[in-house]
């Protein structure tokens, strides 16, 4: 680890890998407590403040989504390197979620159906996406704990705003989050 700890408020970084940004929406759904959160923490690398790169140590990293391509894996590893506590935020991070519905179908078959043979496909040149800008797909979608060690799991599709709030407050105060029965949900 190259980062040295920084003075000031704890920092939070977030990202959405193979997710739908629903978990980020649920984070915003804490409503006016977002002001309280802004008092408690500093947002670091996150789509919320549009910061694109890490430039130091971050206390809490929230990962939405699993890994469906090589870029997801690189981003996830970068988060693991820079964050003290890594949180799997939502079902896609903890079990693959809807993107993982493709996991029992071979990748070539998925691409064939999506770009060549699906009933609504219009692709007269019969080309599969192959631009070098596009990250390569993995053979299947991986839950993040199958790629890097993960410290905290918040399941849910999405985890409720209350669950995210309680977990964040616990982490900021240096405690392990313990969700009450009604906040532990897989839907």
């Amino acid at each position: 680890m190259s980062d040295t700890p920084r003075a000031g408020k704890p920092r939070i970084a977030t990202c959405s890998l193979a997710g739908c940004f629903g978990c980020h929406m649920s984070l915003l759904d804490i409503d006016e407590r977002i002001f309280e959160l802004a008092e408690l923490v500093e947002f670091d690398r996150s789509p919320i403040d549009d910061k694109k790169k890490f430039d130091g140590r971050v206390e809490i990293g929230l990962i939405e989504g699993g890994c469906c391509n090589e870029e997801n894996v690189a981003t996830l590893r970068e988060f693991r390197r820079h964050c003290d506590v890594l949180v799997a935020l939502g079902d896609c991070a903890t079990m693959g979620g809807a993107p993982a519905l493709r996991n029992d179908i071979p990748l070539a078959e998925c691409l064939r159906e999506a770009y060549l043979e699906g009933p609504t496909v219009h692709n007269p040149e019969r080309r599969l996406p192959a631009d070098p800008e596009l990250p390569l797909l993995l053979d299947r979608v991986y839950p993040i704990q199958e790629v890097v060690p993960v410290d905290v799991f918040l399941p849910g599709c999405p985890p409720s705003a209350e669950a995210i709030w309680q977990a964040l407050v616990a982490l900021i105060e240096g405690r392990a989050p313990e969700l009450p029965y009604e906040l532990l949900k897989y839907d």
Partner: peptide, 17 residues
Amino acid sequence: AYRLGITHPRFAYMFPE
């Protein structure tokens, strides 16, 4: 799973067909 407080399984998913 809720009652037992399971937040995630400690095993790799098999994703069977």
